[in-house]
Each structure stands twice: as C-alpha cells, then as structure tokens.
C-alpha cells in the first residue's frame, strides 16, 4: 500500500515537472505572460509534490531519504526547484524558468530510471548528522545548479552579442548584466552551503571514523569543487572577474559538482560511496 502510494506520488512529480517544462517551453517560444503564470503555478505544484514525496518516503523508510541514488537525485531536483522559486520571489530573470524546469525534469528522469527500492540504512549513516550534512550539501548543489544555468544563458547571450548574429535566443534571453548578477548571487549562497556541508561532514567524520579528514575520494573532490568556487569568488572581488569568465567558471564548477555526486561514486568508490 505505502509502496503504491509512493510510486504514484513519484509519477505525479514527474508528470508535474514535465508539464512545467512544456509550459515554460511554450512560453519561451510565444513569450505570452499568461502562459508564464500557468507555468510558474505548475512548477510550484511540482515543488510541493516533490516535498510530499520526500516526506512520504521518510515515513516509509524511517530515515531521511537521501542515501540511495534515486533519493539523492530527487532531493537534488527538489533543491533546484525551491532554490529557483525562492530566487524568483526576490527578482525575475527573463526566461530563467525554462532552463531550470529543463534541468529539474532531466534530473527527475534520471531518478525515474534509478532503482527506487528502499534499502536498510547502513550503520555508519544511522545518525542525525545525515540529514544535516547531506541536506546542506545538496541544497548547495541546488544553488550552484542555478549558477550553472545562468552561466549557460550568459554564454549563449554573450556569443550572440559578440558574433553579432542574432538568432533565436537573443530576444528571449535577459541582459548580460542580470545574468552576471544572478551568477554572483547564486554562487555566494551556494558557496556558503557548500562550506557548511564540508564542515558538517568533517565533524561527522570525526564522530564516525575518528578523524576529521582522511582523503576519501568524495572528500577530495568536494575540496576541489570548493577550491574552484573559492577561486572564482576571490577573483571576482579582487581582480574583477566577471562576465564570460565567471560564466565559464560556473559551468566548470558545476561539472565538478556532478562529478563529486556521481563520478566519484561510480568511478572512484571509497568509503563515502553508499549509494549503489
């Protein structure tokens, strides 16, 4: 019974995200305000459904659902969605929603393919540090994903402005300055969460494994990611790195995030790789 409800709930999440993507896509083509309003409402609904699904899975399994591949990605999609919606509440960036809803949908598709079985929680993870450490880390990924989307949009728009060939995107993408600002804001928030994620992980490691840091591949890659973002933020404030360079860095940083999340688990292994 619980399993069936959970299954249906995830299908609803997938359907709602798909609908949001479709409406944002239509809005992107037609640029009609009314369609955007509908798209936004659907995305909010999708966000609510995602939250319900995560809560339901928590009740079902009895621990924070952020350990298996499926759970992690759903949580990732959830954090991207709500990071965007919280951002959207502060200020609008033209057609940002289209890119975000595409990313969310892709993430949920991957989650749909991954195994949804509920495994017993590994002994090392049976701690209240789990939701804190993993939750904070994935929330940081959500904001860094926003910076990534902003970076892609920046590069598209910059390319059109520089090459002076104005294609489909030119009218539909926002100004370079607003995208650069978006990049810098999302990065600032994402970086704070990333730092907190590493610190909480380190404290938990001390409790679980005895040392704060022991160069597990996941830890190493998190540190590499952290340094990439730290360097970028440092350069922005000291040398005025902005625009194209910042956008490229946001894309590279996010690639590193994805590698930390998946690449490490599947390619490098290590004691951190619980989600198999």
């Amino acid at each position: 019974m619980m399993g069936e409800i959970s299954y249906l709930l995830f299908q609803a999440v997938l359907a709602a995200s798909c609908m949001a993507l479709v409406f944002y896509g239509v809005f992107f083509v037609k640029q009609k305000e009314k369609i955007r309003t509908i798209a936004r409402l659907i995305l909010i609904a999708a966000g609510v459904l995602q939250t319900l699904y995560i809560l339901f899975r928590y009740l079902q399994s009895g621990y924070t659902p952020i350990t298996s591949q499926h759970e992690t990605i759903v949580f990732f999609a959830w954090s991207v969605t709500w990071a965007y919606l919280s951002f959207r509440w502060r200020y609008t960036v033209k057609n940002f929603g289209t890119f975000i809803s595409l990313l969310v949908f892709i993430l949920l598709l991957i989650a749909a393919i991954a195994s949804r079985s509920i495994n017993p929680l590994a002994p090392a993870l049976q701690s209240w540090w789990l939701p804190i450490h993993a939750g904070i880390a994935v929330i940081s990924y959500g904001f860094l994903a926003l910076a990534f989307c902003g970076g892609i949009m920046y590069l598209l728009q910059e390319y059109e402005l520089k090459s002076k060939r104005f294609g489909y995107f030119f009218t539909r993408l926002p100004s370079l300055e607003s995208l650069d600002q978006l990049n810098s804001h999302c990065l600032a928030i994402g970086f704070v969460f990333l730092t907190l994620g590493i610190i909480t992980g380190s404290i938990w490691a001390r409790q679980a494994w005895g040392t704060y840091w022991h160069w597990d591949p996941k830890e190493t890659w998190s540190l590499i990611t952290w340094f990439l973002y730290a360097a970028q933020i440092h350069q922005r404030f000291s040398a005025g790195w902005r625009g194209k360079r910042a956008a490229i860095m946001a894309v590279i940083g996010f690639a590193s995030v994805l590698f930390t999340l998946w690449g490490v688990t599947y390619l490098l292994g290590g004691i951190h790789s619980y989600a198999q």
């Binding site: 100004s175 370079l176 300055e177």
Partner: peptide, 9 residues
C-alpha cells in the same frame, strides 16, 4: 536596444 541587452538597466 543593444545597450539594454548588455546592461539591462
């Protein structure tokens, strides 16, 4: 038009 695409405001 172009200035607005670069600077926004």
């Amino acid at each position: 038009e172009l200035a607005k695409k670069i600077f926004g405001n």
